[in-house]
């Protein structure tokens, strides 16, 4: 059975990949493309560790198939920093110690980025509900929420 040949844009670069019909975007990223920054926590859309952005929307990469992505624009954690400059969310996660083990961090950063694009000035409650699809077992969420609120304030101030 030949693989499907798909052309997408990942983090601004044109990327071709081959995939079987049942192969998820998560599997394509991690196995076919070696982009392991997108994490595998459950495979059922419950943990959010594989959150990436497809055509402007945050999705669980484990619940998207590679074959349906012809022409899609995909953003992953590997593209979040611009060159050697970390995204404000990445900076604030380091400043606030908003990670312990770090396995949920790429997914949370992507979800937070999507959240702030839609709502640049969220309340604590909005951040919490916005991140409800991203499990973190280490931090109790406190420092994550603070980091996102602080990054939002910075991003508003710096336009």
């Amino acid at each position: 059975m030949p693989k499907h040949q798909i052309t997408t844009t990942i983090n601004g670069d044109e990327v071709d990949f081959g995939c079987h019909a049942g192969q998820t975007l998560l599997d394509v990223l991690r196995t076919e493309l070696g982009m392991t920054g997108t994490k595998n926590g459950c495979g059922s859309g419950d943990c959010g560790a594989c959150t990436v952005i497809v055509d402007g929307r945050p999705v669980n990469a484990c619940l998207v198939l590679g074959v349906e992505l012809q022409g899609a624009e995909i953003e992953t954690i590997e593209g979040m920093a611009k060159g050697r400059t970390l995204h404000p969310l990445q900076q604030k996660f380091l400043d606030h110690a908003a990670l312990q083990c770090g396995i949920c961090t790429p997914g949370i950063l992507n979800m937070a980025k999507a959240l702030l694009e839609k709502n640049p000035d969220p309340t604590e409650t909005e951040v919490r509900y916005g991140l409800a699809g991203n499990l973190c077992r280490c931090t109790g969420y406190d420092k994550i929420v603070r980091a996102v609120l602080d990054a939002a304030a910075d991003m508003r101030a710096n336009g």
Binding site: T36, G37, F93, L94, A97, L99
Partner: peptide
């Protein structure tokens, strides 16, 4: 003191390699 962790950058950029990230 509150200092940035030494393994932090790798973990916010997706570079850090966990159990399932090795081939």
């Amino acid at each position: 003191k509150r200092t940035r962790r030494p393994d932090g950058v790798d973990k916010v950029t997706g570079r850090a390699r966990y159990g399932d990230d090795m081939t």
